[in-house]
Each structure stands twice: as C-alpha cells, then as structure tokens.
Design a binder for these strands. Structure first.
Lengths: 110, 110
DNA sequence: TATTTATATTGCAATATTACGATTAATTAG
DNA sequence: CTAATTAATCGTAATATTGCAATATAAATA
C-alpha cells in the first residue's frame, strides 16, 4: 500500500532505517562530504556547491537534521550547519556489528 | 520533478547513496540482522520472520541484492541468501572516514 | 508426467520522495 | 523604517516506493 509497516518493527530497526534513508541520496552524501571538508557552512554555500536550487538544498538539510545527522545553529542572518556526532554513532555501531560478524564468519553459503 | 539528478553527482556519491538507500527500510534492516544471526537463510524463513507477505519480502531481497549487500545462491528448489561483504566494505569506509573526522574535529559550530 | 514447494514477477493502489518556482519569515545593513 | 540578504515553507508536478493479490516460473518429489 505504499506505507511502511513501521509499527511491526523494533524501534532500533526503524531508527537505523531512518538514518540510512537520510544518507540514501547523492545530494545528502555530498552535503556530508562537504561538511567534513569545511567543518561548517551555511545553506548558501551548499547551493553554490550543489547542482540544485535553494529550496531543494534546504529540504535536504531539513531531512538530514530530522534524522539527527547534522545540527544547525543560528549565526546572524544565516544558519551554520555541521555534523551531529550522535546520529553517526548509531550507524557506526551497526556497521561495526556487521563488520565483526563478517570478520568471524565461518559458514558462507555464497 | 521527483527524479534524482544522479548525473550531477560523482559515481562514488551515487554508489554510497544506493547502498544507504537499500538499508533505509526497517524490513531490510531486519533481514540483515537475521542473516547475521543465522549466517544464511531462504526467502521462506524471512517470510515467517517478518510481518510481510512473500512477494514483499522477495522484493526487499531483490533490492538488497541489487545494491550489493546480500548474495543469493541456488540450493535445490530454494535460494540461500547471505551477506555480501563487498557492499558493506564501501559503507564501512565511508563511516570510518566520518568517524576519523569527528574524532579529530576541533572547530565545532553547533 | 503431475503435483508440490519455493520464489520471482506482474499489476495496481496508496503513499512518499524529489525538485523547483513563488512566497514568506527573519535578520542585517543602510 | 526600508531594502537587501538568507533560508524556510507552500504548492505542485513528476516519479519512486511500499505492499500485496494473483500469477508465473522453476526445481523437487511422487
């Protein structure tokens, strides 16, 4: 029906999915990569950096912020964005779990 | 216009986005978690495990496979699925990059 | 060969996402 | 206060995703 059955999955599963989904667009990957390069920047910088219009960039920023992957601070007329460590911690834990499993995996069917 | 401007982003950015997007659904997180628990399983096992119908599970498996996060091997009448290390390597590299950055970050605006 | 078992595919309805022009809101500069 | 700057929101079109019933495919078994 086009609507995710969120209520049937665990909170942790839904949380991870939200975080991964937020990273599931090249523009948002590009935003994260840019923030790594410059520590922090304002929306206008990203509009210059990306091949997208200002409302579109603003929307992507909103999604990253809602997911908990970036933070925004008012700085005069503009808003200063930077990475939010908390969100990435959760992804890191999951990837570490998978990595540990893969390193110790014996029984590989494929 | 509802269509991602893939061609304006780097191949690496698009690749990462595809991988993250594939993880961006709780059912697919649940599938990955189940595979970690049991090493390998067939579609029918997941149909019993998840609150979703067989065609829906099959579709989620297809997406994970297309993204390169799982592999499927014919095993008689059924297909044996397990994690694909290659796909997770790429995500791990990205998360490690971010993690290294966050650990050394001095200038935090937020 | 016919039947059962396991999974993929098709088709479709409901909903979500992507993108942007136009507009609004909020702050700064003059 | 007014104009300029910056970014969010609204409205909307195009497209993608989610989910499942029905069906098709493919292998194992009787």
């Amino acid at each position: 029906m086009g609507i995710t059955k969120t209520q049937h999955f665990t909170e942790e599963q839904n949380e991870l999915a939200v975080l991964a989904k937020a990273l599931g667009h090249p523009a948002r990957i590009a935003i994260i990569e840019h923030l790594i390069k410059v520590d922090s920047c304002i929306c206008g910088d990203l509009v210059n950096e990306l091949p997208l219009a200002q409302p579109t960039v603003s929307q992507h920023l909103k999604e990253l912020k809602n997911a908990g992957l970036i933070k925004g601070n008012f700085e005069g007329a503009s808003i200063c964005y930077c990475l939010n460590e908390e969100g990435f911690e959760k992804i890191k834990s999951f990837i570490t779990l998978i990595n540990t499993y893969l390193e110790n995996r014996k029984d590989q069917c494929c």
